[in-house]
């Protein structure tokens, strides 16, 4: 049986979709067959972040409404043969989703894949519930700012009330320069305030925007970038390895140029 993990957050724009795509791709690179599911019905994005938008034929609503089989709706990644996307529908609303049917789809995927990652929509409305219900584990993406941490706390409460107790934080867009100047919350205080352990702290990394614009997943396209390295560690921690969180000092300007030359 595969593991189903929902990637969620209280606030929008903190990087759920980026985290889903990159952690999914890293798990696939570790040899695990993985499906990433876009649960943001009506506002789909995961296909674009993975650069698969031109290959989408069917979507999750087609599966729910019996227009196709699950296998027909799965889109294989461009580079990783054991990574698949189950796209969201763009023409439906979140209210159209039958939660029981989503649970059935996830159960059936669990029988065939090692991991099912659910990219949840922002907020705590209906779409949130249908992405949380099938999962037994949750990654909560949070950025080091007051509103994101506050909203994450709400989400933790709701997720726990749904019976998910395996919850980890992914602290995204962490800027060590700002933290060192005491201008940004450090990751230890976020862990402390929320009472939830972190499975990874992803450094602010401009490569994320560049690769997303190209329709490539960061860990595929720039595996040496600081954020990609941390995504790799997150996948290994999900797999059960004990790797302590260590924040790397950002490289200087010349280091960046040198690294880009190597790509």
């Amino acid at each position: 049986m595969g593991r189903t993990i929902v990637v969620t957050a209280g606030k929008g724009g903190v990087g759920k979709t980026t985290v889903t795509a990159n952690v999914g791709a890293m798990l696939a690179k570790l040899g695990k067959s993985t499906v990433v599911m876009d649960m943001d019905i009506g506002l789909r994005n995961l296909d674009v972040v993975m650069g698969l938008e031109n290959r989408v034929v069917y979507n999750i609503m087609d599966v729910i409404e019996n227009h196709c089989k699950i296998q027909q709706a799965l889109v294989r990644d461009k580079h990783l043969e054991n990574l698949f996307l189950l796209p969201a529908s763009q023409i439906h609303n979140k209210e159209d989703v039958d939660i029981d049917k989503v649970v059935d789809i996830v159960n059936s995927l669990e029988g065939n894949f090692d991991y099912v990652l659910l990219d949840s929509p922002a907020g705590i409305e209906k779409g949130f519930e249908s992405s949380v219900s099938p999962a037994k584990e949750a990654l909560i993406v949070v950025t080091p700012d007051v509103s994101s941490v506050r909203d994450a706390d709400r989400v933790v409460g709701i997720i726990e009330s749904k019976g998910i107790f395996s919850i980890s934080l992914v602290i995204n867009r962490y800027d060590l320069n700002l933290v060192n100047k005491n201008k940004m919350l450090n990751f230890e205080s976020i862990i402390d305030i929320l009472g939830i352990d972190a499975i990874g702290v992803i450094p602010e990394d401009k490569s994320v925007i560049e690769t997303t614009n190209r329709g490539e997943i960061l860990v595929n396209y720039m595996p040496g970038s600081p954020a990609a390295k941390e995504f790799s560690l997150i996948a290994r921690r999900i797999e059960g390895e004990t790797i302590p969180i260590k924040i790397e000092e950002p490289r200087n300007f010349f280091g960046q140029i040198f690294k880009r030359g190597m790509q």
Binding site: D145, V146, R150, D153, K181, I193
Partner: peptide, 19 residues
């Protein structure tokens, strides 16, 4: 007061009320 410290104190108060 450093911004990080202010953020921490504000969050603690906000979360008590939320929780």
């Amino acid at each position: 007061d450093p911004a990080s410290r202010v953020a921490e104190e504000r969050l603690k108060l906000i979360l008590i009320q939320d929780r």
